[in-house]
Design a protein around this nucleic acid. Structure first.
Lengths: 193, 193, 193, 193
DNA sequence: TATGAATGAGTCTTCATTCAT
DNA sequence: GATGAATGAAGACTCATTCAT
């Protein structure tokens, strides 16, 4: 004589909301933004369909919440990566090594790409991506000046995108080369575009 | 009593097909992959709904054809860009200048990003993106060796992605710096990943 | 070995459309505007849900089409009623008699009331009702002048509405009295509001 | 450290109930019966959703309560109107004048029409409308006999309905004519329907 | 008692896809 | 081959209603 019909879930707004957001983030990361539907999220989160619409009346709102979650995950990984760079001296070699390690984490790369792709698809979401880019730049400022930090961010984003598209990490030698080149180059103050 | 109801379009299968593909490519570039539907394409192309399903039985097939079209457009732009680089000496300065010019073309950047985003969302489409990446690398081989060509491709893709997300071209100084740095750096044969 | 799965209905756009409109009109007349849904209409018409949305993409469009159908039915009944009034001499007695007969037809009264109620609920539909009112006035012009025709139309609409609400015809004596009074009264040219 | 979260409203069950009913009546009058939902009423009344369901477990009950409120408002307006008729002598001219004034009050006409339309849509609510009709008849009994009172009620309801549908008051001359005609006519005892 | 979370049902609408013509 | 009708499936969203707190 078990509890056969728990019919209704315990009341737990915070937990419910978290579960739905996390499920939505996972759907985006694994299946892409096109597949983000209330139904799919409900299934992934193991909650009734009505619950997803209760917490997120519109799919746009749910998508945004999911993207914010992805941004949070990405920020965490940035943190971890740069912490290791610091611990290893903060030079070009350390930087390149950790970047290559980052690119080898297929799951993380999938998250990054899904995040950027989704953000690119909707102007209203681009601010989230802008924040991530700015963060990446800021993270490099302890090691290099701003133009080089920006160059490193571009390199990183390009490497991430290509890694996702290729289905395997981009050539580590090319990454090493680029990172070292950028680290080693002083910006040319007399440069005119 | 002439043909009163020329309902049927003139027989021009190839033209029809082209029109549909171009319309689909435009829908993806302007509204995103999520909005690609037979109906929208039919409207955009000014052809009956039946034509879109006649030429492309499934929406996946239509999407692929549209992506191939986008790849073609991108390739054309690459061609033009590198031709100009050639004409200007093929050095780092010429390369950087043209890359910045490329990034300033918002429409082109939109196409690139839509192409990559769509390709990233579906493993079956990634080959198209892989081909584009390989092409970009090959294009740089006349100027630099392979590792540097790969580094330049990453930089280019990263700059493209960030430009789309930022809504404005990335810092040209950073692009200049990175291009020159990569051009100037010899690959380290003793490099160990 | 009968045809077990006729799966798909014969192609008959005009017939389909008519069937859907008539079903919608019947739903409104019998169950009220609140109950007009694509599903309910599909059931009433015996067609798949998809067919109702194929012909009427929006519920507003379907409602309007249904109301136009009701207006047509009402006009037919007006025609019949006034034809009989004509045949019986076109005097007050004939008019009152037919009006009372009209009010005794519960189904017709239901249609009238549903029509007016629905039209009242949406400004976009009121033009349909205005047309009906104008028609009712015009119908009486062969017998009386315009102010009296308008008075008769008001009387008629009020009697219709009350009959519906009461669930039985309003007092025929009162109708007789009012009709005769209006017929018998010359408009006062010196009347000032 | 006072009561930091006065989440709960002050205890005033009757006031709450009144507020909800009035909000519901307003929703019906302004947006139509189709738009009457617990949520909309809660918003209109400025009370939590739970309050509307607490006081009115079903939407049907809430609708009925709202209609009763509308009936009350209508009765008040009848009172005011007929009081003025009395003060002005209670003759046909006074009656017609006040009726035209009544018809010129767009808000009041909207309430009347919403009330009747809603009542007509649901047999369970028609008793409320019947009561209103009976009241209108009774109000005229001080001036005329019953058949004429009934005739005046029909005229009034018809004029009200047409005014709503037309979006502007019906022709006052026609109203004058009809009222005077009905006032002036003695019922024919020998009348046979 | 008061409130909002929970949830299933149902509504409008859009679509991919199939097929008859 | 060309076209639009036909239709099931699914998606976003709304709501009435129930119930735990």
């Amino acid at each position: 004589m078990e509890t056969q019909k728990p019919k209704r879930a315990k009341r737990d707004p915070e937990g419910r909301r978290r579960a739905i957001i996390e499920a939505a983030a996972e759907v985006i990361a694994r299946e892409g933004t096109r597949k983000l539907t209330h139904r799919r999220v409900a299934q992934q989160a193991g909650v009734p369909l009505g619950s997803t619409t209760h917490y997120f009346a519109t799919i746009d709102g749910l998508r945004r919440a999911a993207l914010e979650e992805l941004a949070r995950l990405i920020e965490q990984d940035y943190d971890a990566m740069f912490r290791t760079v610091d611990e290893n001296g903060g030079d070009a070699a350390a930087y390149a090594k950790e970047l290559n390690a980052y690119l080898a984490d297929a799951e993380q790369i999938g998250i990054d790409t899904a995040f950027y792709s989704t953000a690119a698809s909707d102007p209203a979401l681009r601010e989230l991506a802008r924040h991530s880019i700015a963060l990446a730049i800021r993270r490099s400022l302890p090691y290099v000046d701003e133009p080089r930090a920006k160059a490193l961010a571009m390199l990183m984003d390009g490497a991430m995108l290509e890694t996702c598209l290729l289905g395997e990490p981009v050539d580590p030698d090319a990454v090493n080369l680029a990172v070292k080149a950028i680290f080693a180059t002083k910006p040319d103050p007399g440069d005119i575009r």
